[in-house]
């Protein structure tokens, strides 16, 4: 078994035992349930879904920041490092674990969301809906990476708070202040009105993955320099 697999499994168990895994899943499922269970018009349901998913992604970033920072502070990351586990592997383990949990949450929210919006009158394209959900997943990866970067640099409360505030700011600024660009959550809200939804989703996915890659790289560089 590779060290990355071992560290990822350890991170998932750590999330499970500390209830952070349940918190994250509950945030995503709650967003989907709020959209699916409360009757509303199609546009209102999509807005509710987009806001709920955004909040879950913010929670994901905070959990990521808290988790890595706490691992560092308690010497757990150091324990792994003194067993020849490269620091990059520790970061990768946490990233994959958090991405897997967020992915499960997004699948749940996507299914619940589709149940809520897929009515005979709405005539939403399932491929476009799935592509938009995929783009939201890519956005969540970028926010997880941001959380891990802050978790590398700050103590747990400051890291979690900073990640939540920064994520919320990024989502709201991109949503409200950039009218010409449809971010993935914004695209979900405007899905029935978008002329080329799959193209918008692909653009959003690409931009999000690029941002995630840059943030993971910066977090890796930072983790190589900090004390464990």
């Amino acid at each position: 078994m590779s060290q990355t697999t071992i560290v990822t499994g350890l991170a998932v168990r750590e999330l499970w035992i500390s209830f952070r895994l349940l918190l994250l899943l509950a945030a995503y499922v709650g967003a989907g349930a709020a959209a699916a269970l409360l009757p509303a018009s199609l546009s209102a349901t999509l807005v509710r879904l987009a806001v709920g998913v955004s909040m879950a992604m913010v929670a994901g970033a905070a959990v990521a920041a808290w988790s890595l920072s706490r691992d560092r502070l308690l010497g757990r990351a150091g324990w792994l490092a003194t067993r020849s586990v490269p620091r990059g592997t520790i970061l990768a383990g946490w990233f994959v674990a958090l991405a897997a949990v967020s992915g499960l949450g997004l699948i749940a929210v996507g299914l619940l969301g589709w149940l809520a919006v897929a009515t005979p009158v709405s005539r939403l394209d399932p491929v476009a809906f799935a592509a938009t959900c995929g783009a939201i997943g890519c956005s969540s990866l970028a926010l997880l990476a941001l959380g891990l970067l802050l978790g590398t640099l700050l103590r747990p409360p400051a890291a979690a708070m900073g990640a939540a505030v920064a994520s919320a700011l990024i989502i709201s600024v991109a949503w409200l202040a950039l009218p010409g660009i449809a971010t993935p959550v914004e695209a979900l809200m405007q899905l029935p009105r978008l002329p080329v939804p799959i193209s918008v989703a692909a653009q959003g996915s690409g931009a999000s993955l690029a941002a995630a890659a840059v943030l993971v790289l910066v977090a890796h560089v930072a983790l190589e320099r900090v004390d464990l």
């Binding site: 078994m1 060290q3 071992i6 350890l10 750590e14 035992i17 308690l74 010497g75 757990r76 150091g78 324990w79 792994l80 067993r83 020849s84 586990v85």
Partner: peptide, 22 residues
Amino acid sequence: GPESGLRTWMTPIETLHLAGEL
């Protein structure tokens, strides 16, 4: 070190197996 850095929800046996696997 002065702080063990162990995950205290694990058992000693699990911890030692983890160290061996790594």
